[in-house]
Amino acid sequence: MKLSYQEIKSRLICLSISFLKIGAFTFGGGYAMIPLISKEVVDKHQWITDEEMIDIFAVAECTPGVIAVNCETFVGYKVAGFWGSLLSTVCVVLPAFIIICIISLFFESFKNILWVSYAFKGIRVGIIILLAMAVLKIGKYVKYNIFACIILAAAFILSAFSDINTIYILLGAAALGIFYNLILPYVKRGGKI
């Protein structure tokens, strides 16, 4: 697909306006952004087909990294190449970055208001529920077998009772995953190569 300079320029402008809008007004993180992104680039501008979009979501979800950024970088690349992906990434991050910078100016003194501090005492209890929800959400993508359960329990125990760096726990899990899947067919055949 070869686009003219003019076409790329107008696409970049449209893309950045769309993604700035999505970045500034979407509550609820990456998952909430996905339908809005699709509405802009598939329905409104028709830069990307529905099937392509579904593939992009699948990749964005499984790839390490921030889901919203994954998704928008990919969309940006499809729409306008490297500069599209760079601009999309900047546009999805910028509104959040600015909003948080502004909030942080007032945050400490806001928390020091007596009644607000009571509210935050309650909120710290609410966070437990939010984290439990995250566990359930990520847990949905786990294929539960004995191996997965052992990994889950091992990660829990290691983080609770040892100082091992979390990254090493994940790298260890990855290595075990490869090892287990390579050794499993061999064991199933009863040890015959």
Binding site: A148, I151, A155, S159, I169, L170, G177
Partner: peptide
Amino acid sequence: AIRPAIVGL
């Protein structure tokens, strides 16, 4: 394998 580890963490 990383996903169940993250759930554990």
